[in-house]
Simulated scan of single mutants.
Amino acid sequence: MKRITVFIFALLLYTSCKSEYKPRNIEAISIKEIKMDSTSIRAIQAINNTSMYYAGSMGDVGFTDDNGKSWTTEFIIFKDSIVPHFRSLAINNANKFVLSIQNPALLYKISKDSTQLVYTENHEKVFYDAIAFFDDKKHGIAVGDPTENCASIIVSNDAGNSWHKIDCSKLPNFEEGEAFFAASNTNIKTLGSTVWIATGGKKARILKSEDYGETWQIHNTPIIQGNGPQGIYSIDFADKNNGIIIGGDYSKPTENKANKAVTIDGGITWSIVADGKNPSYKSCVQYVPNTNGQEIFAVGKTGVSYSKDAGITWKDVSKEAYYTIQFVDKSSAWLGGNNKIGKLVLK
Rank of each mutant, 00 (worst) to 15 (best):
V299M: 00
D167V: 09
T221V: 11
G200D: 13
K319G: 01
I296L: 06
S169N: 11
R87E: 02
A204Y: 07
D236P: 05
L99C: 05
T302L: 01
N241V: 09
D135G: 06
S70H: 14
D316S: 14
E124P: 00
S38Y: 12
E210G: 08
D211I: 12
I26H: 07
T64G: 11
K138S: 10
K315V: 15
I4Y: 09
C168K: 10
W270H: 10
W71V: 03
S88T: 00
S318T: 04
V285H: 08
A28T: 11
N95T: 01
G300M: 02
F174R: 07
T73E: 12
K301M: 07
H85Y: 10
G231L: 09
G192M: 07
P23I: 13
G342W: 08
S332P: 01
A204M: 07
Y287W: 14
V98Y: 12
I44C: 10
Y128A: 13
N256C: 12
W196N: 11
D275C: 00
L346Q: 04
S184M: 06
F297V: 08
N92S: 08
G177P: 05
R205Y: 12
V273A: 03
F7N: 02
N161W: 04
F75M: 05
I244P: 11
V118C: 04
I341G: 10
D316G: 00
R3A: 10
T5P: 02
I235Y: 04
K109G: 08
K277Q: 14
T147C: 04
N95P: 15
N48T: 05
D37Q: 12
G311Q: 08
S57M: 10
F78M: 00
A179R: 13
A46H: 06
K96F: 13
R42V: 06
K32T: 05
I8G: 01
D236V: 13
F237R: 09
K340R: 07
N338T: 14
D211Q: 09
A333K: 08
T39K: 01
G248C: 00
N256V: 02
A321V: 06
K282V: 06
D249M: 03
V155A: 04
Q230G: 00
I245R: 02
L207W: 13
K125D: 10
G266T: 10
D316F: 04
E148H: 06
S331M: 12
Y128F: 15
G231M: 09
